[in-house]
Design a binder for these strands. Structure first.
Lengths: 256, 256
DNA sequence: ATTGTACATATTGTAGACATAAATGCCATG
DNA sequence: CATGGCATTTATGTCTACAATATGTACAAT
């Protein structure tokens, strides 16, 4: 070493100047490969609602440590993609029947508004994007279930993107994911998520700048999706039990 | 001990039966006192956008360890209440000007829909709640800034609650918080967040079941809020710099 | 046969220590 | 007087080990 300082000049640092963060790239946890992986697995329905997400197994699968897994899981929990239970672990989120209905209702509100804005703002680039997507969706292999699921989701995301509101886009993304969980929980086996003809119709109406028509078509489309799910009998029994126990628990907390 | 078992009967466990979680209380990270504390501090504008949230300081302030703080911060980051920057720490989120506008636009869409649903579903209990809130808001101490802020936020939350859609309610909560960050970032000093007469008007229209009128009033109210904020000159310069540096960074990454 | 108890195991939660990166202050140099 | 390098300090990121909790199995008791 060149020189040791014999003593500290200013032992107490002068009030650390709080420089606010200006020119930096904020970390985006959504780019985390673990988060991405779990999300795509869920939206492709390879992970079913209620499936256990063990930390060790995930760590081994993704080749990282438990810390990253924990961070990813807690992020997914705050987006209601997984449910965390103390000392038991993380599970793929399973919405209740009421929540499923609320999700569809929220989507009706938000996506009809998105369609409206998309029609208003439609420009050349937007038209091109929309046409490109519609072509891809028209001639994709319908037997490839995973591709179908991805494409149908992308259509709704694309409409939200064309609306030009990033906040609404984030919300739509989240609702899309929760929709696929709702469908996975309550679907009748074998039916597709979206009816195959709805997207071309909506797309064409947007391209034609038929605002009222497009809004109506989107509303109807989401309504149709909702009508494909049914509350499961077994679920109702469980919900009944849950309600009973919750009431008991509440009484216990209140009474003493 | 009573007896030691000489050997294991089944050394390999028979495929752990996956019991799905049914009757359990999922952890709600929102109940965490750290999360609560930071959120209320933000919505009361005691923490300003850009303020640094050091882990050690928070741990000391809340009397807990860094682990809990980290969890809370990462949760808040995924709700866009704080921004995390690698190796620098967490800061109270500061929305961009575009984001602020998008937030208000999203609120116009969602809260007008909420008002509409609230009018449809209004029952005795709802009327009572609404009246009770309006009275509290009418005769609160206008000099108590924190109480005012809480009350005005509660009105919007109450309307979302009356709409009877929990998903929409969560979204509204999140947008409320982000609104207060947007206002804190771009407000003209000294002006209140909400105009004082708007809430009684909207409440009266809901009580009168005047759906169209209530929707229009809510729309106008949010528009008015939005018109109180202005892009800051300094911010624009910074944004310009940010854009430049981001471009440079992207070029560097692309070029090698 | 079914229920209750105790131990074994697996998994999650937590704490502390260590590694690493950014920010600050000091000092030399132009 | 301003600027740039160097060392120190502070703060964050990560790992490892241990503790706490729940689950599963075997066995005893009714």
């Amino acid at each position: 070493m060149k020189r040791t300082r014999p003593f500290k000049r200013k032992p107490k640092r002068s009030e650390p100047k709080h420089r606010e963060p200006e020119v930096v790239d904020p970390r985006n946890i959504d780019d985390d490969p673990v988060v991405q992986g779990i999300l795509t697995a869920i939206s492709q329905k390879r992970l079913k609602p209620g499936a256990k997400l063990g930390e060790d197994k995930l760590a081994a699968a993704f080749g990282t440590t438990r810390i990253h897994i924990r961070q990813a899981l807690s992020h997914l929990a705050s987006r209601k993609a997984v449910m965390q239970i103390p000392n038991r672990g993380a599970f793929v989120y399973r919405p209740s029947w009421e929540e499923a209905q609320d999700i569809f209702a929220a989507r009706r509100i938000i996506e009809t508004a998105a369609v409206s804005a998309a029609v208003d703002r439609l420009d050349k680039a937007g038209k091109a994007e929309l046409k490109a997507h519609m072509e891809r969706e028209a001639r994709h292999d319908r037997n490839d279930r995973w591709a179908s699921l991805s494409l149908t989701a992308e259509f709704h995301i694309l409409v939200a993107k064309l609306a030009g509101n990033r906040v609404l886009l984030e919300i739509s993304r989240e609702l899309m994911l929760r929709t696929s969980l709702a469908i996975a929980t309550f679907e009748q086996p074998g039916e597709p998520d979206c009816s195959p003809d709805a997207h071309p119709d909506i797309g064409a109406l947007i391209l034609a700048r038929n605002k009222a028509g497009a809004i109506h078509a989107m509303h109807h489309h989401i309504e149709e999706m909702e009508q494909r799910i049914r509350p499961k009998k077994g679920e109702d029994e469980v919900d009944e039990l849950t309600a009973i126990f919750q009431e008991i628990g509440a009484r216990a907390r209140a009474g003493g």
